[in-house]
Design a protein around this nucleic acid. Structure first.
Length: 463
RNA sequence: GGUGAGGUAGUACAGUCCGGUAGUGCAUGGGCCUGCAAAGCCUAGAGUCGGGAGUUCAAAUCUCUCCCUCACCUCCA
């Protein structure tokens, strides 16, 4: 049984579910290209989802797009296009980036603009119940009406008021009340019972999670920086509406920092997914993002990314040594290794999704395979036992190793044969020509004592 | 100031909940394999677990205290 640290109760909590695990992940605001910080959060949830599914647990995974928001409108004005066009553009970029990162598509990617009516229904209900009130600027949630406000972020409403960095709006009953609906005549805007305008930020996630996952669901996640105010406000709205517990587990992902400082637009230290993907490829980025506990910060550096090239090479070697195994001898260590690594891998992930420890188990299996391969002791029987587990782990981690077609395989074998002939003749010049030629296709020959195997490597541009 | 998360070999992390004199990767040194390479493998060195105090037969792990870092408290993954 899996345990995940729940931000609300501040402790590891068993992931209980009846027939499926429902996950809502706060996605991105589509006003600019996604950066590596977004990627980390989404990679973590992608692996979580793959892990659950590998255990035959059905997962319903919802990830929203915020496609109406002040930043979108500002940016659209700058670029002299409509807000919807701008959002559409960056939504497309999002999928280009994250398909490139080998992220499995979510069950559904609902958009705020397509759920205006759902939000309005929710707001109406909150107004009726006096949890919300209308001013000349919009509709606001009355924080003081919700007893447990602050329970997620452990903030006291008194402190928030005295902090008073919130922009003062005299119309609001209380400075910490937040907008459900903002009046506005300019586009994009929608008619509503209270007046023309657009929704506040937090209400969309309440409306869409309620609609698709129900009043109460298993996991709600996002970056740590969303704990306050976004998730706190979601709880207030949703639980005021349903009178039920909203998410059962709140799972928050640590920030990506650069030189210890949070990656953000205002600091100007943002690394876009597009850029980093071009340099390092999906596998390196995934290994990098999974190399630390999901809840802690990870410092972005080229040095750390580079370390993962070595890991990737070992992974690739392992895969191809297993694929190219020959001989029918038995190896008694296979079953033991399989059990150990599978066990360590799964229990690591079950224990608060400890990906660094899971990676250790993955690397342990790889090291053992490569070690045997160095001694030419990998047989088909051995590979038959180990390969499925290796592929299972790789699949969960979303590591996608470069494959070759059958034709390519034949041609590689031809080249190895030809090269061997040259080597027997001690015509090393010709032999090396073949090796160089094939290296151009990122295929590396590996000369063992008695035979030559090969690896198809992913080209890493930053290397 | 409030809240939360951290400080473990050169470096990046795990171990802390469930006390038993520290593990893993990378880097570095040496070696194996090779026609030479590459890839891979083997092996070695490296830590008073932020400081101090306490509980205990025993503390990285529990308690207290101090120091430092970061995040959130305004939009943020």
């Amino acid at each position: 049984m899996m345990q995940i640290f729940d931000t609300l109760n501040n402790k590891k909590t068993e992931l209980k579910f009846s027939n499926k695990v429902r996950i809502y992940l706060c996605g991105v605001t589509v006003y600019d290209d996604a950066h590596i910080g977004h990627a980390r959060t989404i990679i973590v949830f992608d692996v979580l989802r793959r892990f659950l599914e590998s255990q035959k647990i059905p997962v319903e995974f919802i990830q929203n797009f915020t496609d109406v928001d002040d930043k979108i409108i500002d940016r659209a004005n700058q670029e002299k296009i409509s807000a919807l066009e701008l959002a559409a553009k960056y939504t497309k970029n999002y999928f280009d980036d994250f398909d490139g990162l080998n992220i499995k598509r979510a069950t559904l990617y609902p958009k705020a603009t397509e759920h205006i009516e759902d939000m309005q229904n929710l707001i109406s209900n909150l107004v009726d119940k006096k949890f919300a009130y209308v001013t000349k600027n919009g509709v606001y949630f009355s924080v003081s009406k919700f007893d447990n406000y602050g329970k997620l972020s452990k903030k006291h409403t008194d402190d928030l008021v005295s902090g008073a960095r919130v922009n003062i709006d005299e119309e609001k009953n209380d400075p910490i009340d937040f907008a459900l609906w903002k009046f506005s005549e300019s586009e994009p805007s929608w008619d509503s019972p209270w007046g023309k305008g657009r929704p506040g930020w937090h209400i969309e996630c309440s409306a869409m999670s309620l609609k698709y996952l129900g009043e109460s669901f298993e996991i709600h996640g996002g970056g740590r920086d969303l704990i306050f105010p976004h998730h706190e406000n979601e709880i207030a709205q949703s639980e005021s509406f349903t009178s039920k517990q909203f998410a059962k587990i709140w799972m928050h992902i640590g920030m990506i920092t650069i030189n210890g400082e949070k990656m953000s637009k205002s600091v100007g230290n943002v690394k876009s997914v597009n850029h980093v993907l071009g340099d390092w490829g999906p596998n390196i980025i995934r290994l990098f993002c999974l190399s630390g506990s999901y809840s802690k910060p990870i410092d972005y550096s080229e040095k750390l990314l580079r370390e993962n090239i070595t890991k990737l090479r070992q992974i690739e070697s392992c895969y191809y040594e297993l694929r190219l195994a020959v001989g029918s001898g038995t190896n008694s260590t296979a079953d033991k290794l399989l059990d150990e690594c599978k066990n360590e891998f799964d229990s690591a992930l079950n224990n608060d999704f400890n990906t660094p420890l899971a990676l250790t188990a993955y690397y342990k299996l790889i090291k053992e395979v490569n070690s045997l391969a160095a001694e030419e002791e990998i047989t088909e029987n051995y590979a038959k036992i180990i390969l499925p587990e290796f592929e299972r782990m790789s699949e969960i981690l979303g590591i996608d190793i470069m494959k070759v077609s059958d034709e390519e395989k034949n041609s590689i074998n031809q080249m190895i044969k030809k090269r061997d002939e040259y080597r027997i003749e001690k015509n090393y010049e010709e032999a090396d020509k073949i090796r160089d030629e094939i290296a151009g296709k990122n295929i590396i020959f590996i000369d063992h004592k008695n035979r030559t195997t090969w690896v198809k490597q992913e080209k890493i541009n930053a290397e």
